[in-house]
Design a protein around this nucleic acid. Structure first.
Lengths: 153, 153
DNA sequence: TCAGTTTAGTTTGAAAATCAAAATATATAA
DNA sequence: TTATATATTTTGATTTTCAAACTAAACTGA
């Protein structure tokens, strides 16, 4: 293990241990959120992947199949059958891409949009609960720090 | 929509909009992390669920089947077959629970521990990258805020 | 222009993951 | 003790997923 800044070994070492702690806190948060989502989803009778799709389309708007597959982390073949089912149950619809005739855009139907809003409300409740003990200043600080992390992603 | 504190409607409304923003930043972060994990995992030839197990056991130590199944979000039946495979490939092992003879503890083998450390290093690298532009003070602030969220979970 | 290559999406057939329900063993409570 | 609850495994069926082959459109470079 080498120290990045020999002129200040102590602070470098402590920065490193903060990163380790931060890393594990992030992993733990991810695990908890993931398990929460799983439970919510199972209760409602959806698959995790379907809700993930609803979430992505709700937050980002219409998206190409390829783009969606990449974000979800499945092949386009898998996504095709998944979207087929979601079209059948009227959560989403396909429409042609304006400029690229190879591409197809997927977007939420009204019913899908309603489902997104319902699911989003659960997330909001969770967020509110998790930050209930924070001051307004702390919450907005957390918002800005997380926003900056997302930008680097 | 009612306002929680009528004596200060404006700040209550703005606190609410911060919560909305915070909520969406959290969802976005979760999505990105999830997609990152998917990609990492696929490259190495593991399933997401297997790596999740490795992560959970690595962070929390030995755990009962039921506990692990709840955290991952699958039934114990599903977990039994998954752990069978992971025992075969020597990532984890089973051992009896000391006081409850119905229960079985799952824990990482040495090989599994090594895999965890390897995977954890990738996470650390990601964390370091995402927080690279933050000051030491900001990073430790983020650590403390996330720690508090985890505690409320 | 036009042949070759890349990219987007779908289809297909097989493999893997998952569930619900039944079965077994142990623990707890009345 | 007897009844009920909990932890795990097993089983059979369903669902999800992948890789590979295929079609169609876009791009690339003589």
């Amino acid at each position: 293990m080498t120290v990045a800044h020999p002129h200040d070994a102590l602070s470098a070492a402590s920065a490193h241990s903060t990163d380790q702690a931060l890393n594990h806190v992030i992993i733990e948060f991810y695990e908890k959120l993931s398990s929460w989502e799983h439970a919510i989803v199972r209760d409602k009778g959806f698959s995790l992947s379907q809700v993930h799709t609803i979430e992505l389309l709700g937050v980002h708007g219409a998206m190409r199949m390829k783009e969606l597959a990449d974000k979800i982390g499945v092949t386009t073949g898998t996504l095709t059958v998944q979207i087929d089912k979601m079209v059948d149950s009227q959560w989403v619809m396909r429409r042609p891409h304006e400029s690229d005739r190879r591409s197809i855009l997927v977007e939420l139907t009204e019913k899908g949009q309603a489902l997104f809003l319902e699911h989003d409300a659960l997330h909001l409740q969770l967020t509110t609960d998790l930050t209930a003990k924070m001051s307004a200043k702390e919450r907005s600080l957390l918002l800005s720090l997380l926003t900056r992390m997302n930008q680097e992603f």
